[in-house]
């Protein structure tokens, strides 16, 4: 605690750095994984290959990936870009399967009814598939958000500042309080992301929450 009271400006600055690495990566992951997931769900044959590739990508350990990325993309090793690319790779690898599942969870009868009343393919996607995929998708995004925030710390090993810097610095200088601060701040940030996503989910899917709160009897026979 003593350490924190002396160093909180640094912690705040590192928290900001941490945020600026994880938020764009999360956003990019969603933007890239959703169309791929949709493709995978619509074309199971391509989808199988895509999901297999994603699962292999995901198997590559993070630190090695951080070192391979500069060689592949020509970005400098100690740069935020390297970090964001690596985090996005993992985010996408994790999310494509969930995205495919999310689109697969949309009742085909609802989709077909939408086509039947005259939704164009584009409006089926924007007005039907995407909103209905949100609950499952969001569950996946929450997992990715938490693991992204935690993963950012690895960047400290190649010299990209984040809350992970507290871990390496604290270790090298033998200050357990600094390491502990790094761990707790990282977990708190992950929790914050998660809480924000849960709130966003509530706002985006009013129909889902209402149904859970006030179930009404239904006479379904088939």
């Amino acid at each position: 605690m003593n350490w924190l009271s002396l160093n909180w400006p640094q912690v705040i600055e590192l928290t900001r750095d941490h945020l600026l690495l994880s938020a764009p990566a999360l956003l990019l992951s969603v933007l890239i994984a959703v169309p791929i997931g949709r493709l995978a769900q619509q074309r199971p044959r391509i989808g199988g290959a895509l999901l297999g590739a994603a699962s292999l990508l995901y198997a590559i350990p993070a630190l090695p990936l951080l070192i391979i990325i500069p060689a592949l993309f020509g970005v400098p090793l100690r740069s935020p870009a390297t970090m964001v690319i690596a985090l996005t790779v993992y985010g996408v690898a994790l999310l494509v399967r969930t995205a495919a599942d999310a689109f697969g969870s949309v009742d085909p009868r609802v989709r077909e009814a939408a086509v039947a009343v005259g939704h164009s393919p584009r409006s089926v996607f924007w007005r039907v598939d995407l909103p209905l995929a949100v609950p499952v998708l969001l569950a996946g995004v929450r997992v990715v958000a938490v693991s992204t925030v935690s993963l950012v710390t690895i960047g400290a090993l190649i010299g990209v500042p984040s809350l992970g810097t507290l871990l390496t610095d604290g270790f090298q200088r033998g200050i357990p309080a600094e390491v502990a601060t790094g761990i707790i701040a990282t977990m708190a940030l992950a929790l914050l992301f998660d809480a924000l996503l849960v709130a966003a989910g509530r706002a985006l899917t009013p129909w889902a929450t209402i149904r859970h709160e006030r179930p009404l009897p239904q006479e379904e026979t088939t």
Partner: peptide
């Protein structure tokens, strides 16, 4: 999932 592995390792 939330615990940073590097944190656990260094601590």
């Amino acid at each position: 999932r939330a615990i940073p592995t590097l944190g656990l390792l260094t601590l």
